[in-house]
Design a protein around this nucleic acid. Sequence first.
DNA 1: CTGTCTGCAAATGGTTTGCACCATA
DNA 2: TATGGTGCAAACCATTTGCAGACAG
Lengths: 139, 139
Amino acid sequence: MYQRNTQQRQVILEELRMLKNHPTAAVLYTQVRSRLPKVSLGTVYRNLEMLYQSGIIQKLEFGGNEARYDGTIDQHDHVRCVQCGRLDDVDLPALAFLGGDCNDFGGFKIIGHRFEYIGICPQCRTKEENQTDDLPAER
Amino acid sequence: MYQRNTQQRQVILEELRMLKNHPTAAVLYTQVRSRLPKVSLGTVYRNLEMLYQSGIIQKLEFGGNEARYDGTIDQHDHVRCVQCGRLDDVDLPALAFLGGDCNDFGGFKIIGHRFEYIGICPQCRTKEENQTDDLPAER
DNA sequence: CTGTCTGCAAATGGTTTGCACCATA
DNA sequence: TATGGTGCAAACCATTTGCAGACAG
C-alpha cells in the first residue's frame, strides 16, 4: 500500500507546518490555495487524513468543533478557547504518565488519552471587558 | 428566563437517568419514544441542551463522535472505545487538580478541562481475537 | 391569555465519497 | 501505462432552526 508523493500532498504538509496555530482544514485550504489555486477542499481532507493515519501529523478533534491539525507529532496538551475555538499549546509534563503504565480499566485496553484545557483566550477576554452585554452562544 | 416543566422534559430527564451508559441523543430518543411516541428528535436535542446549560446534566462531547449525555453532574473521567464508541466511567482522583488552581496559561483564562482515555472495550477486544482480519475504519 | 415548547421538516456545516479524468512512478 | 490521486459536486449525518399550532402557568 504505497503512497505517491504528489505536489498537493507536499504543499499541504508544508503549509500545515508553516501555520503554527493548529489550523482547521478550511483555514489550511485557503492557505494551500495561495500556492495551488485549483486544489479542492476534498483533497485537503483526504491528505490530512492520510498523513494522520501514517502518523506524520496529529489530528486534534474535540467536542463537536471543527478538527484542527498539528504538523508535528510531539506529545503536548492544549488549551481551547470556548468562544473563538483558538487552540494553543500547553506544556504540562505532569500529564505524561496518563498514557503510560495504567493500561486496563474495567477490561478496556487503554491505548491513549485526550486532554484539553478549556478557557477564554486573551483576545476574547478583552472583547468581554469592553462590551459587557451580549453573551455569545455557548457553541 | 423561566422554564416550563413539560412532560417531554421530565420524561427525557428520567429516561436519561435510567440509562446508566451515557447514551447518545439518538439512543435516548428511541428510549423516550417508548413512553411518548410522538416526541421529535429536535425536542430531545433542545431539552438536552437546555438541561445541560442549566447545569442539570453533563454533555460529554469528544473527538468528532456523537455527543453523549450523563444524567448526573458528579465529576469523573471516562474511557471511550475507539471501535464502538462505548463510554464508561473511570474514577481517577489524581486528575482533580487539573481543573483547580492553575488558571492562567498564556493569557488564557482556564475555566475547565476535558479528559478521556481512549481504548478498546472488552466486547471489541474479544471480537478482535476471534477474527484477526478486517481492520475496522478508524472513525 | 401569554409566551414557552412542541412536532415537523427543511436547513446547516463539517466531512466524506463517487466518478471520470489526470499524473506519478 | 497502470493505478493512486485529483477536482468537482453530490451525499452524509449529527445537530440546529423556522414556523404554526399546542399547552403550561
